[in-house]
Amino acid sequence: MEPIRKHKGLVYPLNRSNIDTDQIIPKQFLKRIERQGFGQFLFYNWRFDDDGIRREDFSLNDPKYDNASILVAGENFGCGSSREHAPWALQDYGFKIIIAPSYADIFYNNCVKNGILAIKLSEKGVEQLIEKAETSTYELTVDLEKQVIQDSEGFEATFEVPAYHREMLLNGWDEIAVTLTHEDKISQYEQAQ
């Protein structure tokens, strides 16, 4: 997993709440057995019509967001299915950071495990960011060490990531390797059963 410390990038605003993982990546793309290559299917049914033609009216298809790496969305982002294909698709498409007022629990965990920083920001803060990003080419700098978001126009907001998740993201840990350092305890537990 790639460590993430500080990131500056273009913001893509998606002003909807309850975006479920069926929207992030529809089921017909879950059949592959690889971990890579899911970016092309991100928000597929919103980006493409029934015949596979790009929908010009869906904002992510606007070339101005081509290099976006920070996604800002409404509350309860990533609800529904546990499919890790959702963060895989977001990451493969180029998103490194998500900002929303709240996330579904499983989706949030899946992000951490893949080195995606999912930031919880107040609803008001998110509204502000969405408005700016909808009306201009808008960049943000996210500093995970200091837990602060800034733009060049004086916007600044702090956020909190649970200590353990923060460490994992900053160091890009292989969690299984960490756990296996406690193998003696796992064995003890099993023997006591």
């Binding site: 965990n109 899946n110 893949n114 299984i176």
Partner: peptide
């Protein structure tokens, strides 16, 4: 759980 956690449970 997600797939990374599936792997984690399989291993540990």
């Amino acid at each position: 759980i997600g797939t990374s956690e599936v792997e984690h449970v399989l291993a540990t």
